[in-house]
């Protein structure tokens, strides 16, 4: 098989080739899943210096456990699950903040919700400034797990079922975290607007 033909392989064929010792097939898996893994690692772990070690750990775990992959989900979802678990363990080891820990305090601190007077104000302010940078900075204030959920749902456009598989959270919890995260984002944007940062 020519190297260019590798791109046509299904998950099943890829796994079979990797288990047969074809390291080029694993290279293709890395290429296919790199963006998703970067998304999860980037959102969960803000210390960029740790990213290389984490990325390496994630893919080596995937390589070593490939024999146990049962095709109950897509290969990319399975690797995303390994990424999430690895980052989660990292956060737990470092005793960093996990989902929901910051949320209640911040909501009390900024209890503003758009009122009639603010009609369209968020929309306007987002047009006026560098919207992506502003939103990104608001995202950084979310707890890691919520930040990751928002990114998986809105940026990667994964389904609830896929997100549940990756995070091992019940669907109700995923929906609830997403709801709270989006509300916090909205509130924070409005707060910045009122504070005159924009």
């Amino acid at each position: 098989m020519k190297p260019s033909d590798l791109h046509l392989l299904s998950d099943l064929q890829l796994v079979d080739r990797i288990l047969g010792g074809d390291s080029q097939a694993f290279r293709l898996v890395v290429q296919r899943t790199e963006r998703l893994v970067a998304q999860i690692v980037g959102k969960m772990i803000t210390r960029k210096e740790d990213h290389p070690d984490l990325a390496q750990e994630i893919y080596l775990k995937a390589y070593r456990s490939l024999g146990g992959f049962r095709f109950q989900a897509r290969l990319s979802t399975w690797i995303a699950q390994i990424s999430y678990n690895t980052c989660f363990d990292y956060l737990r080891k470092k005793k960093l903040v996990l989902a929901g820990d910051l949320l209640e305090n911040q909501e009390e601190e900024h209890p503003l919700l758009p009122s009639a007077a603010d009609e369209g104000s968020i929309e306007k302010m987002m047009v006026q400034k560098d919207r992506a940078a502003l939103l990104e900075s608001c995202m950084q204030e979310l707890p890691p797990v919520q930040r990751t959920l928002v990114s998986l749902y809105h940026q990667q456009e994964l389904s609830y079922a896929e997100i549940c598989t990756i995070t091992n959270l019940p669907e109700g919890t995923v929906k609830n975290y997403l709801f709270r995260a989006r509300r916090q984002l909205q509130t924070r944007l409005l707060h910045l607007h009122k504070k005159g940062d924009l």
């Binding site: 959102k43 992506a132 939103l135 940026q155 944007l189």
Partner: peptide
């Protein structure tokens, strides 16, 4: 207005630049 604001927010979230590794992950892993 709030529905509009949320719609805008969701649209903006979709357009956020995707994070990427600033190193060659393929080489590092392989």
């Amino acid at each position: 207005a709030q529905v509009t604001a949320y719609t805008t927010l969701f649209g903006e979230l979709k357009l956020l630049p995707e994070p990427h590794f600033s190193f060659d992950v393929e080489a590092l892993v392989m």
